[in-house]
Design a protein around this nucleic acid. Structure first.
Length: 718
RNA sequence: GCACUCUUAGCUCAGCUGGUUAGAGCGUGCGAUUCACAUUCGCAAGGUCAUAGGUUCGAAUCCUAUAGGGUGCACCA
């Protein structure tokens, strides 16, 4: 017996060594797996953002996926788990900008595009390297030979190809529309990148001029210089008689022309029941302007400063302009009342800037446009249908409803960003001005067009555009590769439910349109891992834990097991270090069980054993139950089952009972008992392997076997 | 406003399609120990499964309502 067993199990000594052994074996790459004719199984790793290092939430994700992957591999599938990282455009650039601002007091404009990009890339590379080493520490059996990055060259080709094909189909268009402008990050963002924060605000009720017949309410008086109408509900008796009338007014030095219109969007109960329509600076007002064919004067610019008025307003920040206007209203006797209300303020997810809705010329994906090549279906249809038909299964299924609801409310997706880090839009223009003249020559292609004077659009793409291609861009698309044929649609995707819209929906959109097939068959959503007190892990609240820190202390096996067991599907869970400690003890327990078995069963070859004698049925029932849990993604139950069986049935009872026989029994019964102990044990070690791969692999290498396989490719029992 | 979700032992949570005395881990109390393991073992205490109704032979599990916590979406003038 190996003398290692005389000491407690030491994950530190074991884990890195075992990981190297696995990598050397080549079995992470399915091309090297033995042929078993069971078919293919594939997962792409949700690529972590290169904005920093991994936290425990990633460890949870890695644990679940590695568990699924190792199980399928043992089941004999050609199993591919494909790693990669995400450039996370805005998030990464914003992070680096922040640091440079803090350390050097410089903005990205001070550095210039080229130098800024160099800095971001450098940072991204460092993050990448840390992330990869963290993932390895977890024991993740990823095929590193296929590693991808959302911003590498192959993915860039995929992005350009996708863009062109959607452009040619008329689904990507450039339009002057109201967008979410982030004055802090100096870029547009999509609806999904907005976070609403509840804040106290003042609601002012006033009228534009003395002879104006209706009072209106607003929290943003400064935008009112851009008003073109007052909208009332069509059935509001109070205002019916005014509908259709038009008024001129001089509003704090700005001449405005107001038409009174009726629109069903207006809520009779809110404020005075009359809405001042500011088409250029409010999403709903923009739509009202659409319906009533109103002008849309812009009064605020990209820096959240006023662009109209005399010295009182012009070039003032919106917050200053607000005070000016409120004071003016007061002095003119137009202000009826002010009241405190709480309102949701739209802020940018990554920079925290307060969103300023502005009309801008941007690129969009049309989600409601009938697609000829798809029999008149829209992108929304293409997203909805595979889930409705059950081709894509979402687990837990309650998220299907959430998914449909999101699709119903979806507006055209703004994909252009005014940041530098990302995939540059593959469109070229031939004319001096890029922003104003729409009639100039335009060319969308994979490569820059022939001829003189072409200039590429300086905008980059929303990071989710490239992540949307992830299931197939990683497999070689647009080339028709063998990987694409074998591994797409992928079998399973396992993100947190918080990116169902951002990512899962977009992958379905992209794959459905570009490949005409689903990106994955099963979406298994996991919950969010929170800290001990139920708070979300985040860098800002200082509760971030590096998984490697926990691994150093307790071992990766213990961490994995603690994250998986006792957590209901799709439920959030709290991280508990004590639980990890408990599973470290468990690792030691199975270590010592092995020692006992090696000391007490003098069998030469475990692999030829066929059953566990009288204990066979009980054991096989447990194993079958557990296998069925594995098949149905009830990993937390499977983990609990094997744990309970090993510790409290096998060790506490079966093994204890065997002592007497081994000591006092006759030769025959001794031999029977030894055989069934050994039989149960090798199968327990196999079944525990997806959960605790390191310690089981280490144990496996010390059991007396004639075959000399790694445990990771052993056959799953029964 | 609409939807989803949670409320089970002191704490953190499991409990899959309704089925015998409701489970685990940690914690607590008592005890054991030359025995594979003190990172151990045995025993014990501790729950009217949020509340009120209903369906059923039978409900923690299904239905309805209520209360409290969380989340998403819409509105946010």
């Amino acid at each position: 017996m190996n003398e290692k067993f005389l000491k407690p199990y030491d994950p530190k000594e074991t884990e890195d060594r075992i990981y190297k052994l696995w990598e050397k074996s080549g079995f992470f790459n399915p091309d090297n797996l033995p042929e078993k004719d069971k078919g293919y199984f594939s997962i792409v790793l949700p690529p972590p953002n290169v904005t920093g290092t991994l936290h425990l939430g990633h460890a949870l994700e890695d644990s679940i996926q590695d568990l699924a992957v190792r199980y399928k591999r043992m089941k004999g599938f050609k199993t591919l788990w494909l790693p990669g990282t995400d450039h996370a455009a805005i998030a990464t650039q914003a992070k680096v900008e922040k640091e440079i601002q803090k350390k050097e007091g410089k903005s990205r404009y001070d550095l210039g595009r080229e130098e800024m990009l160099r800095r971001v890339k450098e940072f991204a590379q460092q993050s990448h390297d840390t992330i990869v080493s963290q993932v390895r520490k977890m024991g993740a059996s990823l095929d590193w030979s296929r590693e991808a990055f959302t911003l590498d060259e192959r993915r860039n080709l995929a992005v350009k190809t996708a863009f062109k094909s959607m452009y040619d189909a008329g689904l990507i268009y450039r339009g002057n529309r109201i967008v979410n402008w982030d004055p802090k990050g100096q870029t547009t963002i999509s609806d999904d990148e907005i976070v609403y924060e509840e804040r106290k605000a003042k609601l002012y009720t006033f009228k534009y001029s003395k002879d104006f017949p209706i009072y209106i309410s607003t929290t943003r008086p400064e935008t009112k210089v851009g008003d073109v109408a007052v909208a009332v509900h069509p059935e509001d008796e109070r205002y019916e008689k005014f509908i259709g009338q038009e008024f001129d007014a001089e509003f704090c030095g700005v001449a405005i022309h107001i038409k009174i219109i009726a629109d069903k969007e207006v809520d009779k109960e809110f404020g005075t029941g009359a809405l001042g329509v500011t088409p250029a600076h409010s999403m709903t007002d923009w739509e009202i302007a659409d319906r009533h064919d109103l002008p849309r004067p812009q009064v605020i610019n990209e820096y959240a400063k006023m662009t109209v008025g005399d010295e009182r307003l012009l070039n003032k920040k919106t917050t200053e302009a607000r005070e000016v206007i409120v004071n003016w209203l007061r002095s003119e006797g137009l202000l009826e009342k002010e009241e405190e209300i709480s309102q949701n303020v739209a802020t940018a997810e990554r920079t925290g800037g307060i969103i300023e809705p502005l009309p801008k010329l941007q690129w969009f994906i049309a989600v409601n446009k009938p697609i000829k090549e798809r029999g008149g279906k829209t992108l929304k249809d293409l997203m909805r249908e595979p889930v409705e038909k059950g081709e894509i299964k979402i687990i837990p299924d309650r998220f299907e409803k959430v998914y449909y609801h999101w699709i119903e409310n979806l507006r055209d997706w703004c994909i252009s960003r005014q940041i530098w880090y990302g995939h540059q839009i593959p469109v070229w223009y031939r004319s001096a001005s890029l922003t104003t003249d729409q009639k100039k020559e335009i060319c969308c292609d994979i490569n820059s067009p022939e001829g003189e004077g072409w200039e590429q659009d300086s905008d980059t793409l929303d990071t989710w555009f490239s992540s949307g291609l992830w299931t197939f861009s990683t497999l070689g698309w647009p080339e028709k590769t063998g990987d694409l044929k074998n591994y797409h649609p992928t079998s399973l995707i396992n993100p947190g439910y918080e990116i169902l819209f951002f990512w899962v929906a977009r992958m379905i959109l992209m794959s459905q349109f570009l490949l005409g097939e689903i990106p994955f068959k099963t979406v298994f959503l996991h919950g969010i891992l929170r800290d001990k007190n139920g708070k979300k892990f985040s860098k800002s609240s200082g509760n971030n834990i590096d998984p490697v820190e926990i691994i150093e202390k307790y071992g990766a096996d213990a961490l994995r097991m603690s994250l998986i067991s006792g957590t209901g599907m799709g439920n959030d869970s709290n991280f508990d270090e004590n639980k990890v400690k408990g599973y470290k003890n468990f690792a030691n327990k199975i270590w010592n069980i092995t020692r006992f078995i090696l000391e007490n069963t003098d069998l030469e070859d475990f692999s030829s054993l066929k059953d566990a004698g009288p204990l066979s049925k009980e054991f096989e029932d447990m194993a079958n139950d557990m296998t069925s849990d594995m098949e149905n993604y009830r990993f937390h139950l499977a983990a609990e089952k094997i744990y309970q069986y090993i510790w409290h049935r096998f060790a506490d009872e079966i093994l204890e009972d065997s002592k007497k026989v081994i000591k006092e029994g006759d030769d025959n019964s001794k031999k029977e008992v030894k055989k069934s102990l050994a039989y149960i044990w090798i199968n327990c070690v196999k079944m525990l392997h997806p959960f605790m791969p390191f310690v089981t692999e280490e144990i496996w290498s010390m059991l007396p076997q004639k075959r000399n396989n790694l445990l990771m490719i052993e056959e799953w029992p029964f």
